[in-house]
């Protein structure tokens, strides 16, 4: 069986809007990927544990609450602790332009802002993980 890209799409923290996460999850599935969606209100610990157990290639975080500077590094740190630093983290949501560079310096692989074409996300993931 050929290698499939496995992606965990997760919503950390308290924001309750998952339309964006669902749109992305559906687009990735239609592009032939295996997408694990874990639902709303996840703690960083739950997301990291699920990512490790599912052996995903990459975790996609959707954050609209403004907590991105806390959530992203915490999850990256937890993955490292579990010896799973090979799992990359990307994300999207309401993230101010000036924070994107900060996130990338913290080890976030890629940030997609509002209005991103899902085809660009697919292209990026296929390029990096296929």
């Amino acid at each position: 069986m050929a290698k499939k890209i496995r992606v965990l799409v997760a919503k950390p923290g308290l924001d309750g809007h998952d339309r964006g996460a669902k749109v992305v999850a559906n687009a990735l599935r239609d592009a032939g990927m295996e997408v694990i969606y874990t639902g709303l209100h996840q703690t960083p610990e739950m997301i990291a544990e699920a990512a490790v157990q599912e052996d995903v290639d990459v975790v996609g975080l959707s954050i609209l609450s403004g907590a991105h500077l806390t959530m992203f590094p915490r999850i990256i740190e937890l993955l490292k602790k579990q010896e799973a630093e090979h799992i990359k983290v990307f994300g999207g949501g309401i993230i101010p332009a000036e924070d994107v560079e900060k996130l990338e310096s913290m080890g976030v692989a890629k940030v997609f802002g509002p209005g991103t074409d899902t085809r660009d996300i697919i292209k990026y993931l296929k390029q990096e993980f296929e």
Binding site: K4, R29, Y37, G39, H41, T43, M46, A50
Partner: peptide
């Protein structure tokens, strides 16, 4: 798995969230 795209949406964990703890 979708027989058309080969992709899959795996959603069983949504009901089992707390087990990840």
């Amino acid at each position: 798995t979708s027989p058309f795209s080969g992709g899959a949406l795996l959603g069983d964990r949504i009901r089992m969230q707390k087990l990840s703890e």
